[in-house]
Structures are given as structure tokens and as C-alpha cells.
Simulated assay, not measured.
Amino acid sequence: MTRIDAKFADLKAQGKKAFVSYIMAGDPDVATSLEIMRGLPAAGVDVIELGLPFTDPMADGPTIQLAGQRALDGGMTLKKTLEMAATFRKEDDTTPIVLMGYYNPIYSMGVDAFLKAAKAAGIDGLIIVDLPPEEDSELCLPAQEAGLNFIRLATPTTDDKRLPRVAQNTSGFVYYVSITGITGSAEADAGDVAPEVIRIREASGLPVIVGFGVNTPAKSQAIAEVADGVVVGSAIVSRIAAGDSVADVLSFVKSLSDGAHAA
């Protein structure tokens, strides 16, 4: 059982929904992003999604793209991202960390070397946006053999024919992208999300966490009421980009997690 599996089992036992937060590793700089990461569990975050900066983030909107560029400009790399996770793990051995990004940096490091380093750093799961199920032998299957959850994205265009393929070999949870488009480009609607969550949960047997288009405490609660949890990324990253203090960023995160946990 991974930390992700244990977290969702614990939340289910408590009758609570999950709150997942995304931050970009190294944004606005390594020290500040680590300080924010360290504060996330106390702000009510159940699972941390740690963004891996990449030069061509095709699924991300301007907010996340610019965060990745700031991190890259500051010298952030895959190796340093894993070092950041390892530093966090020295103080927190329970909060799950999901590394979210694209395959190119992992491919460049080498899959075996990456999986060994990720496991040593305390990474629990992977969301690799540009690896479809047809490429499971590349990373998904080796990752699961190494004890990491491989978390797949489902979208409004994932029809009943495609969904079983998406659910195959997925573990931990399914990330439902609530809108068609890039991150930060529209708002999620609970009425539209609810039947999709049921459909995906039945197909996968896994918790379904909804992201993209969640940007307020009220929206966080509304989406969590019809899903197993909610992910917020762009709204948090935009506060970091605006130069908010670490305390203010974490206060905003707490308001979002309170919304999700009130569901």
C-alpha cells in the first residue's frame, strides 16, 4: 500500500473528501517553493502534486506555463525537484507526493535511474500528461513494479469505448479533467462533473479527484460534494506569481481545503 492508498483509505474511513494542491517545484525560487510545500499539510492538503518544470507544457495554461518558466530560469531540474521532495520527506513521512509533468525529462534521465531516484526521494505517484495508455510499457508498468502509483487523466471526451483503456493499469486515483482545454481556462461545473465521476469510478474502482477550473473555496466545496476530492493548481500558483507571502499563500490554500473538507 502506497502513501496515496493509505491516505484515501483513511479519508474514506473518516467520511472526508480529499484536497489536493498543486505547486510548481522551484517557483518562484527553490527556497520559497520548499517553504510553501512544507506548509501545505498544516493548511489541510491531503496530497501534494509537485509540478516538474518543462519547456513545452502542452496541457497547461499561461499560469502554470509561466511558473515552469520561472522555475527553469532559476535553474530547476528534475534532479533538484527530487532533492526538494527528499528534503520535505525528512520532516513529513506521511503526506503523499505526486510528481506531475511530462515524459521528456524522465526519458532523458533514464527510466530505471529516475524510478530509483524518485522512490528514494519519497515520491508516491506519477501523473505524466503526455504518456497515453498505449505507451504503458515506457513508464507506467515499470513505475508500478517499483511501487509507485501511476495516475491517469480522464477528460470530458473520454467516452465509454476509451475509458476502460484509460482505467487499465491506473492506480491511486483517477484525475478527472473537468473541462476541455488547458489549465486555468474555464470553471468546473458540479452538475456536469457529477455523472462523469460516477462513470469513471465504476469503470476504474478508484477514487476520482476533479481538477481544472476550481479556484474558490465555494467551488472547491461544490466539486468535492460530487467527487472523491478536488485538485487546485492555477489559483494557488497565481497567488505565488503575484508575490503573495508564504503565509498568505498558505492561508488561501487553507480556505480551499476547508471548502473541500466541508463537502
Rank of each mutant, 00 (worst) to 15 (best):
G110L: 10
D60S: 04
Q221K: 15
G211N: 07
I128D: 04
P28R: 00
I223L: 05
L141F: 11
I106A: 04
A203E: 06
T55R: 14
D10C: 06
A242E: 15
L99C: 09
L52F: 04
I106P: 08
L115Y: 03
T87P: 04
I4T: 12
V226I: 00
K12C: 06
D248G: 04
T63N: 02
V210D: 01
M58Q: 14
R3E: 11
I182T: 15
Q65T: 11
A67Q: 02
D29V: 12
V232I: 14
M1G: 13
I106R: 07
F173V: 04
S251R: 08
A143R: 05
G211D: 01
E138V: 11
T81P: 04
Y102V: 09
E35W: 10
D130S: 02
G184M: 08
C140P: 09
K17R: 15
E49H: 13
F212A: 05
A224G: 00
R38W: 13
R162P: 15
A262P: 09
S234T: 05
G51K: 07
L66Y: 14
A154F: 13
D228N: 05
A222V: 01
L11N: 07
P41L: 05
A113P: 06
G68Q: 01
A186H: 12
T180G: 03
L163N: 07
V230R: 07
L78Y: 08
K7I: 10
A6Q: 15
M84P: 06
G205V: 00
A6F: 08
S234K: 00
T63F: 05
G61Q: 09
S251V: 00
G15V: 08
E196V: 14
P195N: 06
L115C: 00
R70C: 03
G74R: 13
S220H: 01
S255N: 01
L250G: 02
M37D: 04
I182W: 13
I179F: 11
L141M: 15
L40C: 12
V174Q: 05
A143T: 03
I36W: 13
D60L: 06
S257C: 10
A120W: 01
L206E: 08
E187D: 14
G101P: 03
S178F: 10
Y107C: 13
A218G: 02
S257I: 09
K7H: 11
T180Q: 06
G191E: 11
P53G: 03
D112G: 03
A260R: 08
T158L: 11
G39H: 02
E134C: 08
D136F: 15
A167V: 10
I123D: 02
K119N: 08
I4C: 12
V174A: 06
L66C: 10
D244E: 08
P28W: 00
T157Q: 03
I64P: 00
D112T: 01
Q69D: 12
D258F: 02
G110W: 04
Q168S: 14
E49M: 12
F54V: 06
E83N: 10
G191Y: 09
P62N: 10
A167N: 12
T157W: 03
V174N: 02
S245Q: 05
A203K: 10
G211R: 05
V226P: 02
V177E: 11
V98P: 14
P164R: 13
